[in-house]
């Protein structure tokens, strides 16, 4: 049982490392947000599961932490990406399509 727990915890920690590396290597804010959010969410879930296998009496609290992080982490990075697009952070030059431009052009037109 303890081996299963450590394998889950190692997987979680590995995805934390991937998340950090993704934040460092990706070329612009939006790609960084993608790598960071996904990797840390699964990392946390896997790590909490590993801890729960070793300490079954902690499972309710761990469940609360897991649900909270799974709900709020994507909301946080979506808000950040939206704010970043609004204030015009540089976008990676390899970006293919940009459907968002029309939305903000319309909004800016209304403001003036």
């Amino acid at each position: 049982m303890i081996i299963v727990s450590y394998i889950l915890m190692l997987i979680g920690a590995f995805f934390y490392a991937i998340g950090g590396l993704g934040i460092y290597r990706m070329p612009d804010l939006f790609n960084r947000a993608q790598a960071g959010t996904k990797a840390t969410t699964l990392g946390t879930l896997s790590l909490l599961l590993g801890v729960g296998v070793q300490q079954p009496s902690w499972i309710p609290k761990l469940l609360l932490i897991a649900v909270f992080i799974a709900v709020t982490n994507p909301v946080g990075s979506s808000t950040l990406a939206r704010a970043g697009y609004h204030s015009g952070v540089p976008i990676y030059e390899g970006t293919q399509v940009d459907d968002l431009k029309e939305l903000y052009k319309k909004e800016d037109g209304l403001d003036e």
Binding site: G12, Y16, G76, A83
Partner: peptide, 16 residues
């Protein structure tokens, strides 16, 4: 924004 994003990632890692 990049700094806040990395701070957010660090916070999740720290709570883990």
């Amino acid at each position: 924004f990049d700094r806040v994003l990395s701070l957010d990632t660090m916070n999740i890692i720290i709570s883990g």
